[in-house]
């Protein structure tokens, strides 16, 4: 058997025991491993199928017009106010976080000199921020914005908390996108006599736009799905927010509230469907953007 001779070579580094294995044991192991891998992947696919399938099957029949009534009351358990609040919250958080995140990324890539100590510090800070669990953000938000700054349980407290939460996400993706812009673009622009600011705003930023956009989409996904950080900052009042300082509940918080009350199981299923649909839509959209850039390697992390 030629096989055995050939097999000895890669295994020489390993233990002699392995080298003496017969070809048939090898084949067996390969088979076992192949199936283990398939099983693992199958498990993952199954989990998603069961999760989504179950919620769709139980939820879609319960979708009714009542759920989308403008006013919430205990009879219709409408999710409309929560949906509107979610949009408001998302818009407001992005309004705060996006300029900061993009600005920080521009500073880090375009302005800071290499080896600047501030750059390292910002990076460490952003990394720390992205690892903090959302409940800690919630606690911080309630201590800082709600109590110390006296904003109360309100839309603005929630939005501020969330904008700190998504800041590192936007910063990182924007930075990556800016770094991917070839230096020749910048040099060309400088060569034409443009200043640094003009180069950044007119040349570098537009060519990095899809990357920036995908960061923003990720942030939206996170904001929409967030609940723990909002319960103690934005509150749980199921009405459309009338001002920046009125308490609101977003769709996720709404979902949590009605699911844990346990009185409206059917409506919970339906709400879950809407929430899932929203997340999936955001996801699809950002995947499309990502595909347009041609799949950055680190985007998924």
């Amino acid at each position: 058997m030629n096989w055995n001779i050939a097999l000895d070579a890669p295994l020489a580094r390993r233990k002699a025991r392995g080298a003496r294995k017969s070809a048939s044991t090898q084949q067996l192991w390969s088979l076992v491993l192949r199936w283990a891998v398939r099983l693992g992947a199958g498990f993952t696919a199954l989990v998603l199928a069961v999760l989504v399938g179950y919620i769709l099957v139980k939820g879609v029949p319960n979708l009714s017009l009542d759920l989308f009534a403008w006013e919430y009351n205990t009879e219709n358990v409408s999710l409309m106010p929560a949906l509107v609040n979610t949009l408001l919250m998302t818009a407001l958080s992005l309004l705060i976080a996006a300029p900061l995140g993009v600005g920080a990324a521009i500073y880090l890539t375009e302005y800071a000199r290499r080896g600047n100590r501030l750059v390292g510090l910002v990076r460490i800070a952003a990394e720390t921020l992205s690892g903090i669990p959302s409940i800690l953000y919630g606690l911080f938000g309630s201590l800082c914005f709600v109590v110390a700054l006296g904003m109360g349980l309100s839309l603005i407290s929630g939005a501020l908390t969330l904008s700190i939460m998504v800041l590192p996400l936007i910063l990182r993706t924007t930075e990556e996108a800016l770094l991917a812009v070839p230096d020749s673009y910048r040099e060309g622009s400088f060569g034409l006599g443009a200043g640094r600011l003009r180069t950044t705003l007119r040349v570098v930023l537009p060519s990095a736009a899809p990357g920036v956009l995908s960061g923003v989409m990720l942030a939206i996904g996170r904001i929409v799905g967030e609940s723990a950080a909002l319960i103690y900052t934005a509150g749980t009042v199921p009405k459309v927010a009338s001002s920046l300082f009125s308490s609101t509940r977003t769709l996720s918080v709404h979902m949590y509230a009605i699911a844990s009350e346990g009185l409206y199981i059917n409506q919970s299923y339906a709400t879950a469907v809407v929430l899932l649909a929203l997340v999936a839509a955001i996801h699809l959209f950002s995947a499309q953007i990502a595909a347009k850039i041609g799949g950055g390697t680190n985007g998924k992390v």
Binding site: T44, V47, L48, L51, I55, G221, V224, G225, E226, S227, A228, S252, V253, M255, Y256, A259, A272, L275, L276, V279, A280, I282, H283
Partner: peptide
Amino acid sequence: LLAGVPSVV
């Protein structure tokens, strides 16, 4: 997508 599903769901 599985990574993006909100934790309440």
